[in-house]
Amino acid sequence: MTKFIRHAIPEIIEVQPEKFGDYRGYFSEVFKQGLFEAEGIAADWIQDNQSYSAQVGTVRGLHFQVPPVAQAKLVRVLRGAIFDVAVDIRKGSPTYGEWVGIELSATVLNQLYVPVGFAHCFMTLEPDTEVLYKVSAPYSREHEGSIFWADKDLGIAWPDTGGAPVLSEKDEVAPSFADFDSPFEYRTRY
């Protein structure tokens, strides 16, 4: 049976689908709408995105999109492993500026649900890592935002991958959390 695990920020949910294996390999139901809805995850997934990162220590994030195209995400790893992080950026939230980090891997098949109102980032832990994630709104360059992934005010405990992080130019110059004015307001449901 699929497990839904709530962490320090209860809106961030780790999903652990059951895996059935035999001599041929394995089978797993990685997404079943009714199970997710029973857990309060009722996003209308409209698009799947896939990324490939060749090097260990590749960082992608902290990213988000603002309304009216804010995105919820359901993240999983097809090959390799990542340290996946969600940061609460909802003004007025009791966990504003706090984060949850989970190791996701192709071996475990676990996933992370990141709702609207959270910035998202991951760091690859293995070479040739492929990540697949569902989103609830289309990409919009005009509505994208970011926060510096290693901002000291956030205090994210990134794993030591043994080398310098691999970043895009955009992520290298993302604004600090102190300079960030969130467009998201805390409420119990989006």
Results as ranks from 00 to 15, higher is better:
P127K: 08
I82E: 05
M123N: 05
V108I: 13
P115D: 01
A119T: 05
A106M: 03
F118P: 06
P115C: 02
Q71M: 12
E130C: 10
P67I: 05
F83E: 07
P127D: 12
W99N: 12
L109V: 11
A70Q: 06
A106T: 05
R76G: 10
M123S: 03
V116N: 01
L74P: 03
S93K: 04
V85G: 09
A106I: 04
V66W: 00
P115R: 04
L78Y: 00
R76I: 05
G117D: 03
V66N: 01
C121E: 07
V75G: 11
R79L: 01
P115K: 08
C121N: 11
Q71Y: 08
P67W: 01
D88C: 10
T95F: 02
V77R: 00
V114S: 09
V85F: 01
A72P: 09
A81N: 09
I102R: 14
D128Y: 02
N110F: 05
T107P: 00
L74R: 02
T124N: 12
E103N: 14
D84Y: 12
A72R: 05
V100G: 09
S105Y: 02
L78T: 10
I102H: 08
E126D: 14
T107Q: 14
P127L: 14
P94Y: 13
Y113A: 10
K91E: 15
Q71S: 06
L62M: 12
V87I: 15
C121G: 15
V108M: 08
V116Y: 00
T107C: 00
Y96W: 07
H120E: 06
R90V: 05
R76D: 06
L62H: 01
L74T: 02
E98G: 01
V69M: 06
R79N: 12
L74H: 12
G117P: 01
V108R: 14
V75W: 03
D128G: 06
V75L: 14
V108T: 14
H120W: 04
V100F: 03
V108D: 15
G92H: 01
F122I: 11
G92M: 05
Q71T: 06
F64N: 11
S105C: 07
D88I: 09
R79P: 03
V114K: 06
W99R: 06
E126H: 14
H63I: 07
E130I: 14
V116G: 01
V87D: 08
H63L: 06
V100W: 02
G101T: 04
Y113H: 13
F83V: 11
F83D: 06
D128F: 08
V114E: 01
